[in-house]
C-alpha cells in the first residue's frame, strides 16, 4: 500500500490551521491596536506590522514541511476575515501574497534550514509581499521621500524582530513542551545518548 502520500497529510494540515487560527485571533485584535499606534504618526505603527507575518514563520519552524508557510498565512488571514477584520477581503489577499513570499524564501533554502537567519529572511520576504500589495493599493508612492524611508525601515525592522527572532524563540519554547514529537520523534541528542 502506498502510504507515503506526497504533500501534506491531514495531521499536518490540521495542526497548521489550528496554529493559524490562534494567530488569526491575534491578527484580528492586532488591527485596532495598530490603528491606535498609527495615530501617533511617524510610522511607529509599522514596527508592529511584523506580527502579521508570524503564522507562516512559526508553522514552518514547527512542522518543517513544504507548503506549510503559505497555508498557515492564508489560513490565519481567512480566520481574520471570518472574524470580521476591519480590512475585509484585503487581508485574505495580503495573507496569501505574504505567505507566498515567505514560502519562496524557505524553498530557496530547500526547506533545510530553520535558524534565525532564514526565518528573518522569510520575514523580509513577507514584508516585500505586503509592500507590493501596498504599492498597488495604497498610493504610498506619493509619500514624501524621507517619510517613505522611515516607513520602509520601520516595517522591515518590525518584521525581523517579531516574525524572525520572536518566532524562533516561540518555536524553541514549544519544542521543549514536546509537541513537535509527532514530526521529529527523535533528535540527534537522543541518538547521542544511546551511543554513550
Amino acid at each position: 500500500m502506498e502510504r507515503k502520500a506526497k504533500g501534506l497529510k491531514l495531521a499536518d494540515i490540521l495542526t497548521t490551521i489550528v496554529i493559524a487560527i490562534v494567530f488569526g485571533v491575534i491578527y484580528k485584535v492586532w488591527g485596532p491596536l495598530y490603528d491606535m499606534v498609527k495615530v501617533f504618526g511617524f510610522h511607529a505603527d509599522q514596527l508592529m506590522y511584523g506580527m502579521w507575518f508570524i503564522a507562516s514563520s512559526l508553522a514552518y519552524l514547527l512542522i518543517r514541511k513544504p507548503g506549510v508557510a503559505l497555508l498557515a498565512e492564508t489560513a490565519a488571514s481567512s480566520g481574520e476575515l471570518i472574524m470580521g477584520s476591519q480590512w475585509g477581503l484585503e487581508v485574505l489577499i495580503y495573507g496569501f501574497v505574504q505567505g507566498l513570499f515567505a514560502e519562496l524564501v524557505f524553498a530557496a533554502f530547500r526547506y533545510r534550514r530553520f535558524d534565525v537567519f532564514v526565518v528573518s529572511l522569510s520575514a523580509v520576504g513577507a514584508t516585500a509581499g505586503s509592500l507590493i500589495m501596498d504599492f498597488y493599493k495604497g498610493y504610498i508612492d506619493a509619500l514624501a521621500p524621507w517619510n517613505m524611508a522611515l516607513f520602509l525601515l520601520a516595517r522591515f525592522i518590525g518584521a525581523i524582530v517579531i516574525a524572525g527572532a520572536f518566532a524562533v524563540s516561540l518555536a524553541k519554547a514549544l519544542e521543549k513542551t514536546g509537541v513537535t514529537q509527532m514530526w521529529r520523534p527523535a533528535s540527534q541528542d537522543d541518538y547521542d545518548a544511546l551511543n554513550r
Binding site: L81, G84, S85, Q86, W87, G88, L89, E90
Partner: peptide, 10 residues
C-alpha cells in the same frame, strides 16, 4: 473595503 468584509463575515 472594511464594511464589505464585515458584511460578509457577519
Amino acid at each position: 473595503l472594511g464594511l464589505l468584509g464585515l458584511i460578509f463575515a457577519l
